[in-house]
Nucleic acid binder design. Structure first.
Length: 944
RNA sequence: GCCGAUGUGGCGAAAUGGCAGACGCAACGGACUUAAAAUCCGUUGGGCUUAACGGCCCGUGCCGGUUCGAGUCCGGCCAUCGGCACCA
């Protein structure tokens, strides 16, 4: 770090203001009913995704979003809003626990230290958080309510009639435990041996743990689940009106994965198995228990179903398999079970499977079709069974090819419709050979109505698009959508199926085998679970010396024998909640963090919710953001909250890359430490640079010279107000005077007010800063310089002459040694004050200091810059009497002329046609048309 | 494979369908300085042309379209990044 002189004394003034903010808490927001609360003001809740306080401290990614929200928060305060802008800590988490395992240091200690470091660092950037609302998810005063919310979920069920969560008491069935929103199930889970815990689907990436990258295997275990699937439809529907990036909405929709289709029952054919011939159950064609139900999104292809496939784990498999096929089926099941998720995915390309020996009846065609098992059919989706329609499904096609199963076309492509290659294209010689492998009856008896080649589309495999039903007596000739409807109606009529919807979303695996998390407020008695009384909350984790996973899947809490024993007959639940639990509702607690009697006070919740602006990284698109919406809905349904969605407007900040354009990492040695930057350039420069880099949502590389540029800008602001005297002290510059701005200056001022206001609302901070740079350039450049006139007139070409100050009684700038340049003009105090307010959200320290300095000499304005009203611009100052417009001939600029703003179209046209340069270019041509856009341009269209 | 985002000077980037490159960085030239740093002023997309003022042509990933006019709208490609990935 260089020891060169600071361009302005940020190293003195930034700590000064930070100390003042610490002392006076000017950013504290009062709740309704509290002293200092002003009900006349509108509210604004602006929230950051709170950090996990890791050991490595803040990196430059954190402050990007935090600076954006801080600017908005400070801006909204100046605009007269009651602003809620809190910060807290997502403090439960694996790293602290793993550190504890390595060192024996209790996670609580590590976490406390990390929080302290994060807090110091955040304060060093000058964020205007209301620190009185600070919360930590690992604080018993907080997690007692996390546990309380879990109990609300536990004590409720999803009523399919009302489509709402309701207290379990309203459930009329005989087994409440089967419908609770929190339930225990023996499910195949993602078990990570290395971490000694199970993980949610969302925490597994490519068959490895998201944290640490350790292998994850499937293994059945008894786990707590939250019934998020019950809310699938609402999670999709209520997403629609939110002001979120379309991409994130789409990500959530895809994650939830809604598919509309039908369930179809296939009777198992009784005569398939010689061994069971004569078994009375196998003779009828709809014996209960011997139907296989499948889910399909394409019921219109039912006639094309030439085989069936069950998931290997499907319990029906054992009942169906013939004696002959038993050894092969069992071997295959073993083989599949041994595969990890990774392997199962990796081998996706090669289809494998085994014939069960059994047959089913295609309810439409009446044909006997073979039943197979294959691992490309998943037990967890739909019914764990499919009908194989190789002609119209890629996977089924591959499978049919591998095992030489029949392929029957039942949907004909319609020429000229979606996805149909023009004739002649997509047909290669290999098509003939492809046809050869198709069994004889592949296309049925009916000639292919599409004529020409008896195609599967091109030679690529299955045709999965929509078309016209063929070879399907009930629906022949119908387009796909209609065919779906008609066949579904027919299925319902015959009692063979029904329309239904399936979701990819699975229930949320909610328990973890960890120490450092919220214990479940649950006890076990006689093998059944019970909730503990609310009065027993918070349920604090027991003290432990050994945090290591037990390795058996039994949670570390099992080691605390005393704690585990709840009573003679009951023991405590040993699992803890996942890290997401605390972050599912922290935005609610911020509204009323000190409330000891409720998770959030009703009035506070009604006043502050929902979150007006939520800024954070995309990585939470389907995790935190889905879970939080889920909890919000449950709590809303149960009457605890006033809104059904928590986050009105969501914005994702883009990642900041290293100077080399690569992701910042120790490996590349390109990590930028915010505190190093602040030490050298100051917090204001750091903040402004992060915002000036480019659009908030975009990924962008760091640039140290870019920081320098922004730092220079702030120094120019400083020197606009201050100058250094002979003793080397900064004093108010004598050029700052109580004078009126020139007309040109006034225009820049108002253009800047307009642009900065609009840009902050739109979160376009980079262009807001650019406009303030223009402002400063206009006020620092000598009159008449190109830079001056460019800035002042808004004329990029800088050609218009502009210039002499129009200020009555402006005194010549006092001579000031070397700094006094000829033509230096005075700087109006009022203009400076406007700039300082506009810049305040971006560079709060510098502007506070300069505001104070100005106030000492020109005491007309209130003392504190944070009490200022946001300036309003006046349109009348933005318009000019004259405007320079380009004259075009056939769309090419040939000249520019300055015309009165009020010039009529006819006048403009006349001016254009009379123009010498235009004349030159239309010479010998006939003018066909003259396009006149008032105040913009004139285009003369001419040709031969 | 599917879905989404992005593609503009040497670099980060601006541009309600209306003068492409605002603002900043870097580079170069100049002023100040014994000198350097800092600061200030200026030049800076490419090519051609002019003694000079100036003028002309090309240019927003590629190909095509709509329009008086396209970075912007439409169709088709290509590349990079991100997400999902046997979900029937």
């Amino acid at each position: 770090m260089s020891e060169r002189r600071k361009p302005y004394p940020f190293d003195l003034l930034e700590p000064k203001w930070q100390a003042l903010w610490e002392e006076l808490s000017p950013f504290h927001a009062s709740n309704p009913g509290e002293p200092g609360f002003d009900p006349a003001r509108p509210k604004y809740y602006v929230l950051d995704m709170f950090p996990y306080p890791s050991g490595s401290g803040l990196h430059v990614g954190h402050p990007e979003g935090y600076t954006a929200t801080d600017i908005v928060a400070r801006y909204k305060r100046l605009r007269g809003f009651n602003v809620l802008h809190p910060m807290g800590w997502d403090a439960f988490g694996l790293p602290a626990e793993q550190y504890a395992i390595r060192t024996g240091q209790h996670p609580e200690v590590t976490t406390r230290e990390n929080i302290a470091r994060f807090k110091t660092q955040l304060k060093r950037i000058g964020f205007s958080y209301d620190w009185q609302r600070e919360i930590s998810t690992a604080d018993p005063a907080y997690f007692r309510w996390t546990q309380w919310i879990f109990l609300q979920i536990y004590h409720s069920w999803f009523n399919p009639e009302t489509k709402r969560a309701e207290p379990i008491a309203t459930y009329r069935g005989d087994d409440p435990d089967s419908v609770r929103l929190a339930y225990v199930a023996e499910v195949p889970v993602n078990w990570c041996p290395e971490l000694g815990t199970v993980l949610a689907n969302e925490e597994v990436v490519d068959g490895k743990s998201e944290v640490g990258g350790f292998p994850v295997v499937r293994r059945p275990m008894r786990q707590w689940m939250l019934r998020i699937t019950a809310f699938a439809e609402r999670l999709i529907d209520e997403l629609e009106p939110l002001d979120w990036p379309e991409g994130i909405k789409l990500l959530q929709r895809n994650w939830i994965g809604k598919s509309e289709g039908a369930e179809v029952r296939f009777p198992v054919a009784g005569v398939a198995d010689p061994g069971s011939a004569g078994d009375p159950r196998m003779t009828g064609d709809s014996v209960p228990g011997y139907n296989i139900t499948v889910f399909t999104t394409r019921p219109d292809t039912l006639y094309g179903a030439t085989y069936m496939v069950l998931a290997p784990e499907n319990p029906l498999v054992d009942r169906l398999t013939t004696a002959e096929q038993h050894p092969a089926v069992d071997a295959y099941k073993m083989q599949v079970a041994a595969k990890s998720d990774l392997e199962r995915t990796d081998l996706a390309k090669d289809k494998s499977g085994v014939f069960t020996g059994a047959y089913a009846i295609n309810p439409a065609s009446g044909e006997r079709i073979p039943i197979w098992i294959a691992d490309y059919v998943l037990m967890g989706y739909g019914t764990g069974a499919i009908m194989g329609v190789p002609a119209h499904d890629e996977r089924d096609f591959e499978f049919a090819q591998t095992f030489d199963l029949r392929i029957r076309e039942v949907v004909a492509q319609v020429p000229g419709r979606v996805g149909v290659p023009p004739a002649g294209e997509g047909v290669s010689p290999s098509q003939t050979s492809r046809s050869c492998i198709l069994p004889k009856d592949c296309f049925g008896e009916t000639p292919n109505p599409a004529g020409e080649t008896p195609t599967l589309p091109g030679n690529l495999g299955a045709f999965t698009g929509e078309g016209i039903a063929v070879n399907s007596p009930l629906i022949d000739g119908l387009p796909t959508a209609e065919a779906k409807r008609k066949i579904t109606d027919w299925l319902v009529e015959k009692g063979l199926g029904r329309a239904t919807i399936n979701y990819k979303l699975r229930d949320w695996l909610f328990s973890r085998q960890r120490y450092w998390g919220e214990p479940f407020p649950i006890i076990w008695r006689d093998g059944k679970h019970e909730a503990v009384a609310e009065s027993e909350l918070p349920l604090v984790p027991p003290p432990l010396d050994d945090f290591k996973p037990t390795g058996t899947g039994e949670p570390p809490l099992a080691r605390a024998k005393e704690w585990v024993r709840y009573s003679e007959a009951a023991t405590r639940e040993l699992n803890t909640m996942p890290q997401w639990a605390g972050s599912c509702w922290y935005y609610l607690r911020f509204c009323d963090p000190g409330n000891a009697g409720r998770f959030v006070g009703e009035e506070a919740e009604r006043y502050w919710m929902n979150v007006d602006l939520y800024v954070g990284g995309t990585e939470h698109a389907v995790l935190h953001l889905l879970y939080a919406r889920f909890w919000q809905k449950v709590l809303f349904d149960l009457g605890h909250l006033s809104t059904t969605e928590p986050f009105h407007r969501l914005v994702n900040q883009g990642m900041i890359l290293g100077e080399d354009g690569r992701k910042m990492s120790k490996r590349w040695g390109n990590v930028i430490d915010p505190l190093d930057v602040i030490a050298e350039y100051g917090a204001d420069a750091f903040r402004c640079y992060e915002m000036f880099m480019g659009p908030l949502e975009q990924m962008k590389p760091w640039s140290m010279t870019g920081v320098e540029g922004v730092s220079r800008f702030l120094a120019r602001v400083w020197r606009l107000v201050m100058e250094e005297n002979q003793a080397g002290e900064w004093v108010l510059s004598p050029t700052v005077q109580e004078v009126e701005p020139t007309r040109a200056q006034r225009k820049v001022i108002h253009a800047t007010i307009k642009k900065v206001s609009e840009d902050i609302e739109a979160l376009s901070f980079n262009t807001a800063i650019a406009q303030m740079m223009i402002f400063v350039n206009a006020f620092t450049s000598p009159p008449g310089s190109a830079r001056d006139s460019r800035a002042v007139s808004g004329d990029p070409a800088g050609k218009s002459l502009r210039g002499s100050p129009e200020v009555a009684g402006e005194s010549p700038a006092p001579a000031r040694e070397s700094r006094a340049l000829p033509g230096t003009r005075s700087v109006p105090v009022a203009s400076l004050r406007t700039l300082l307010v506009l810049l305040n959200p971006f560079a709060p320290h510098l502007t506070s200091e300069l505001w104070e300095t100005l106030g000492a000499k020109f005491p007309s304005a209130p003392a504190g810059i944070t009490e200022q009203p946001w300036p309003e611009y006046r349109e009348e100052y933005l318009v000019e009497d004259e405007v320079e417009i380009p004259l075009q001939v056939n769309g090419k600029v040939r000249d520019r002329v300055t015309v009165p703003i009020a010039a009529t179209n006819a006048e403009l046209e006349a001016i254009a046609l009379a123009n010498e340069r235009v004349q030159e270019f239309i010479a010998g041509l006939t003018v066909r048309k003259v396009v006149v856009i008032p105040k913009k341009l004139v285009n003369v269209v001419a040709n031969q």
